[in-house]
Design a protein around this nucleic acid. Structure first.
Lengths: 342, 342
DNA sequence: TATCAAAATACAATCGATTGTATTTTGATA
DNA sequence: TATCAAAATACAATCGATTGTATTTTGATA
């Protein structure tokens, strides 16, 4: 209840020794005799001493803190990624400051400033839908603070990142639809300033090309990929003069919105239309029909990204090496796309 | 690229004024002339000055940082709560350090120590399944650092907390099953050292009593409420010499596990057995049959808890007042429990 | 222009820990 | 017991910002 924090100086005074020795003893330095260490440790425990990391960090100019910026914590993929980040960081003795951009560039900029003021040792970032380039990361570059993109990244300059091969995964997803006898395949796409959605679109297009299916501009419907966009997109799609029988969605959320609306209007899946999503949200295995999707482990991406970042922080020589790590994905085939014909 | 951080001393030297004036100018103190402020601000911007919050916080012994401890970030309820916490904290100028106990008391203790060392201004905590009391929060009490429980709390001493009325919600859930003509009602319960599960069990029991349905010990099956527990629990339940036709689950996750196994063994819901869960996970509206459940807004609980905590931090007079805020819940009726008879 | 209160700025200590260097202590050896 | 290297400890500066007090500057007034 007393307001006075116990400091190394208090311990030093009580024991009649110098605070530098107390500091070294508490950090288990070989420069302090074991007998003295014991004495100091005992007194520290007795007084309930708790090091002030602010002072320590200031002196060492090292905070053992990582900044994390995600669009939205409550999205399952990001929550998993954060879980992986926190666990890995904790294991290595790092704390984690979590911030959400809520898809706003302006908020992302403010967050960067806060993280700079807090002198984080490194930053993990998955950019907002509004972010077009990495100009706002200038402060990090200037101060030589390492940062690593994960999942959503910028392609406007070379940076370290942990991503999946969106092109390849989208290609495989679309190819799967074709193998399931889909002949007219629509694509619900995301904001094209984000690399990941651009690449998913390219993968879709490439698969059509490989199988000589004509690409139709109108069959690509862009949105923010929210659940309610699913219904809107399906309405647009049904109004087109095509008999669409395959649908590749750039994420599961919009796919689930689509499935629910298609059920309402009595269109049969997979017979009338086969559907593939992207991300393997928890819901996707539970919805009926269960959604075929690309499995992308947030936990693994978070873990790998954190290890990469901590490696950059610890090894000055790795600081300026830009590395891209591609985390494996796989297609999970479920009822939404598996036709009897097979 | 230069290693030298710009400090107020650098700015002071360049402009030939004292660093205290620079500090006051940057903090917009009335003690500095506007002309001088302009000069200093311009130079600060030019040099890309960024205040060192470590030094500032050390001097002010105030960090504008909140510690948050949850069992697991990737659980939807906690992810939503964190989203609410982060958003509210950010609005009030606080940072948030997020930690997960992974249901381990030992980890929870270590986290508390880290948060103490980082001199957080306050702590929000939802305890692990292993935590039986609040002994490990002693360091917080000793240093007079305010903390607020949310959702999972201790009842071993008086504390501030933001919770729902688990008893009342469980009562309503069970009552609903009874109104839907369930006569033999099982309960999948959670660890009884957690108040929330204890109260959900009590609510279940009280509802049976009110409607004169005999309470049977064997119909209460406890577990950690994971998805795979759902299957295990159902197997146990089916082996009992009762024809169970109603099931109240202490959370949605175990309910979903149960539903999936019941579908597999061809038991009809809600006709053979009506089911109610607890928490309203995202999955629950999507599974078939859609799960009737208690809606509990993580976002709201997180927001309310953060406001309560910041209020304690800011108003010394509120620091020692223990307050319990009860956030409203509601029963969402879906197909898993709605019988034709109605 | 001298005076003086108010305004503006400078000085210096401080937050608590760390760390390079200086000094003291220890204990083996002659 | 005197000597001396090694071991142990003390001294003092430092990280960068804040803040109470002292000093200087400003500008209105006589």
């Amino acid at each position: 209840m007393d307001n006075t924090e116990i400091t190394i100086h208090d311990i030093a005074e009580i024991l009649g020794i110098n605070s530098s020795t107390v500091s070294r003893a508490l950090n288990n330095s070989p420069r302090v005799a074991q007998k003295t260490k014991d004495k100091i440790l005992e007194k520290a425990t007795e007084l309930g001493y708790q090091r002030n990391d602010l002072a320590s960090n200031l002196r060492k100019s090292k905070t053992f803190t990582l900044g994390v910026i995600v669009p939205r914590i409550s999205r399952h993929f990001f929550a998993s990624a954060i879980a992986g980040i926190e666990e890995t960081a904790f294991k290595e003795g790092y704390n984690v400051i979590i911030c959400q951009s809520l898809e706003s560039l302006e908020r992302e900029q403010r967050i960067i400033n806060t993280l700079l003021a807090n002198r984080v040792d490194g930053v993990l970032i998955s950019i907002s839908m509004e972010t077009k380039n990495d100009d706002h990361l200038f402060g990090l570059k200037q101060r030589n603070i390492p940062y690593v993109f994960f999942d959503r990244h910028c392609n406007t300059s070379i940076n370290s990142k942990v991503v999946i091969d969106d092109f390849e995964a989208a290609f495989r997803a679309t190819e799967h639809l074709i193998q399931q006898k889909s002949t007219v395949i629509a694509h619900f796409s995301g904001p094209q300033n984000l690399e990941i959605y651009k690449n998913r679109f390219k993968g879709y297009k490439a698969a059509l090309e490989k199988y000589s299916i004509p690409f139709k501009e109108e069959l690509v419907i862009s949105s923010s990929l929210m659940e309610h966009d699913g219904e809107e997109n399906v309405k647009k799609m049904l109004s087109l003069p095509y008999k669409v029988n395959g649908l590749f969605c750039a994420n599961d959320v919009v796919a689930i919105g689509a499935i629910q609306y298609l059920k309402k209007v009595q269109i049969k899946m997979p017979d009338d239309i086969a559907i593939v999503g992207f991300s393997n949200e928890t819901i996707s295995s539970v919805i009926e029909p269960a959604l075929t999707t690309i499995n992308q482990s947030g936990l693994e991406i978070g873990t790998v990204a954190t290890n990469l970042l901590i490696n950059k922080i610890s090894n000055a020589s790795n600081k300026n090496i830009d590395e891209t790590i591609i985390v494996k994905t796989n297609l999970i085939e479920r009822k939404s796309s598996l036709r009897e014909v097979n």
